[in-house]
Simulated assay, not measured.
Amino acid sequence: MTTYTTMGRSGLKVSRACLGTMNFGDTGVASCDEREAARIVDAFVDAGGTFIDTAGNYSGGQSEEIVGRAVKGRRDSVVIATKAFFPQGPGPNDRGLSRVHLTRALEAALRRLGTDYVDLYQCHAWDADTPIEETMATLDGFVRSGKVRYIGCSNFTAAQIVEAQWAAQRVGGTPLVSLQPQYSLIRRVIEAEILPACERHGLGALVWSPLGGGVLTGRYAGGTAPDRDSRIGRLLAFPGAAGRAWADDLLNPRTLAVAAEVGKVADELGATSAAVALAWVRARAGVTSVIIGPRTVAHLEGSMAGFALDLPEEAAARLDEVSWTGDLTPVTGMLAAG
């Protein structure tokens, strides 16, 4: 099973595998009902997993509610991370990183999770409308109150990480200990500046979408039309042109070529493509924990195999070569809201 490590420049111990719960609930693109979600949480914890990530906007708050009920009776044995930024209501103060919204969002998260503290509270995105000093002072207040143990961020650029850490110093507050960025064999942009910034400023990397939206599992090989229930199929169901653009960004000759090489390595090792892709991410320098987002217990079991697989040096080098393009274009769009 998974091993454990510390999160950034802190004493917080987390499992290398993190259970992502964006799929928990029955709204939006989520498609995991509470009964199956509870089975997933049980299987994850039974396998030694301790780290669970959610957010206030996942399924309109259902994800936090489901997680809270699933860990009831063993709250102190798990590390719960949640996030705030995205709209949780119709008003102008129902989103962002202002003191008003963060305070409301934390109280709502504690209520939905059925707990009196959150282990890791994260800014889900950068807020250009709020002074970063206000955000960091507010988060420090949460830590001092005991309602939050550690603070982190998600989808920040290298410059934004630096700004946040400097702001924490200026207000005499608590620094960030984690960043949640997108990272996979088809999304390596964070290697250029973001991972070095994390190392320099004491943030652990809790990476999301390690399977590249499912592309790296090999399920879209050979031009096969995406299943309606797949990640790509659900993106295509989005109204307007956005869903098609997101799907095309994931499915193109380059990403399919990377997925094909992952499949070849998997065949040689007698493993699954998913396990190989996860093993590659897990072994990368600077990666603290890897978020997996199963919708069934079978998906979970398949993903956990990636935390027991050590890639041979030659195989890892092949994957490095086929996946690196030198493209440092920042990720944008819906996928940056993971």
Rank of each mutant, 00 (worst) to 15 (best):
S209E: 12
A247L: 04
I194S: 05
V171C: 10
V171D: 03
T157A: 10
L206V: 14
G243I: 05
E163T: 05
E163S: 11
R244G: 14
P175I: 01
G222E: 08
L179K: 01
I186E: 02
E163F: 06
Q165T: 11
R219H: 08
L195W: 04
L236V: 11
D229C: 10
L203R: 00
L206K: 05
V207S: 00
V177Y: 03
F238R: 14
A260I: 09
F156Q: 01
I161W: 07
R244K: 15
G202W: 02
C198S: 02
S230M: 10
R188Y: 04
G202L: 06
I194Y: 01
L251K: 03
W208F: 13
A241H: 11
A221F: 15
A260H: 13
I194T: 13
T217G: 07
Y220W: 10
G204I: 00
D227Q: 15
V215T: 10
Q182T: 04
R188Q: 11
Y220P: 05
G214W: 06
L203F: 01
G223S: 08
G243W: 10
A225Q: 15
R188L: 07
W208R: 04
P226T: 08
G173K: 06
L185C: 00
D229Q: 14
D249S: 15
R244M: 15
D248T: 07
G233W: 02
P210L: 00
G213H: 05
T255G: 08
D248A: 13
G204H: 01
A205C: 13
A245Y: 13
H201D: 09
G202I: 03
W208A: 06
L195G: 05
A259L: 07
A259F: 11
V162R: 13
S178K: 01
T174K: 06
A237V: 03
E163L: 11
I194P: 01
I186P: 00
L176G: 01
L185M: 03
L235Y: 15
Y220V: 08
P253M: 11
Q180S: 05
R234A: 12
C198N: 07
G204Y: 03
F156R: 02
A260G: 12
R170A: 14
G173S: 00
A164L: 07
I161A: 08
Y183D: 06
A259V: 02
V207A: 02
P196M: 06
A225D: 14
G213E: 03
V258R: 05
H201L: 09
G240E: 09
T224R: 15
A245P: 11
R219E: 14
L176C: 09
G172W: 04
V215H: 12
L203A: 00
L236C: 10
E193V: 01
S178F: 03
V162K: 08
G233M: 07
G218I: 10
R254T: 12
W208V: 01
L195H: 01
G222V: 12
T255M: 09
T174A: 07
Q160A: 08
A257P: 02
S184Y: 04
P226Y: 07
P253W: 13
S209T: 08
A257F: 10
A192H: 11
A245I: 14
